[in-house]
């Protein structure tokens, strides 16, 4: 079976007033149709950039530097403007962080879903979508400002699945919602994925949440996917030291956007390809090789990890990393 989305050593640069910032530094992953992938990482890890890259939705100041990203076997960077629009229409559905911002305040919900369906949907399609996302029929007549955050996100999801995409990309879809609603929305996304058979890419900074709803987890750091494997495995026995750190802090309840306090040091800001492991400055196990040689994303125990020491070549130092698991 061919992957619905596949990134190969994807590198993109942001052109900023102060110079170039490398947002993705050779990110690789792939996802088969109908499967769900959770991409996890701190803010600045490149996960949102990767999510946007799937639809080639990157801002104008972003340059595709190297590698490739294919959706349904087509390179998104090779398509012309109409081609990418067609791909977005037919194959992709996006759900963004803030549902209120994602809805046009001057248009009723029903009208917006109608437009998302392509303008002239079959009769009954809008109610069907509303029902699918758990909104009452009357919501079609509502204005965005009349909806609660959770209902608005349901409406956004309805718009995202309106044209039955083969891949749904959700970037922190619950970040702007009350804690009580988060599980509901995530469950809805999973349910829809199962119902419609589309694949799901869920971007989040909360490893446990992703582990609960996704089949596969990709951990991102410094613009790379540093570990990729089945949820249970990654969650129970992370290979990459960063994954372990992430898991540990998740238990301490870090808020969105906060740095991972228990890990000393700052996430890297790259201006070009990292020469070694970009986690090395913060890693308790780093040695000379980690600083000089880029660790490839390599198979280790049925998973992929980008760490020279992930296969146990380094002594397990430090303590408490696995406590509570």
């Amino acid at each position: 079976m061919n992957a619905i989305v596949r990134a190969r050593d994807l590198a993109v640069d942001y052109t900023m007033p102060g110079g170039v910032v490398r947002a993705l530094d050779g990110a690789s992953f792939e996802l088969l149709p109908g499967r769900s992938l959770g991409l996890v990482g701190e803010s600045g890890s490149g996960k949102s950039t990767l999510g946007l890259a799937i639809g080639r939705l990157l801002p104008a100041n972003v340059r595709h530097a190297a590698g490739d990203l294919e959706v349904d076997g087509r390179s998104v960077f090779a398509l012309d403007d109409e081609g990418i629009r067609a791909l977005r229409r037919t194959s992709l559905g996006f759900v963004f962080q803030s549902p209120m911002a994602a809805l046009d305040p001057t248009m009723r919900i029903g009208r917006q879903i109608t437009l998302a369906c392509g303008g002239q949907p079959d009769v009954g399609r809008v109610p069907e979508l509303l029902q699918q996302v758990g909104l009452p029929k009357g919501a079609a007549r509502a204005w965005p400002h009349e909806l609660s955050g959770g209902m608005a996100q349901r409406a956004v999801i309805a718009m995202a699945i309106a044209r039955r995409p083969r891949l749904l990309v959700a970037d922190e879809p619950t970040a702007a919602l009350d804690t009580s609603l988060r599980a509901q929305i995530l469950d809805l996304l999973v349910a829809l994925k199962n119902e419609t058979g589309s694949a799901l890419v869920l971007l989040s900074h909360e490893l446990p949440v992703v582990a609960r709803v996704c089949e596969i987890i990709g951990v991102m750091y410094g613009g790379r996917v540093v570990e990729l494997g089945d949820s249970a495995g990654v969650f129970s026995r992370p290979l990459h030291p960063y994954s372990r750190a992430l898991l540990a802090t998740a238990h301490d309840g870090a808020r969105p956007g906060e740095r991972l306090a228990p890990i000393p040091g700052m996430p890297p800001v790259l201006s070009g390809p990292a020469s070694g492991c970009s986690f090395a400055p913060r890693c308790a196990f780093a040695d000379e090789r980690c600083r000089s040689e880029r660790p490839p994303l390599r198979p280790i125990g049925g998973r992929l990890a980008a760490c020279h020491h992930a296969d146990g070549t380094a002594p397990e130092r430090g303590s408490g990393m696995s406590s509570g698991m």
Partner: peptide
């Protein structure tokens, strides 16, 4: 956001 959304839908 709704403009990004519309772009993402391929309008």
């Amino acid at each position: 956001g709704y403009i990004t959304g519309a772009v993402a839908r391929g309008d």
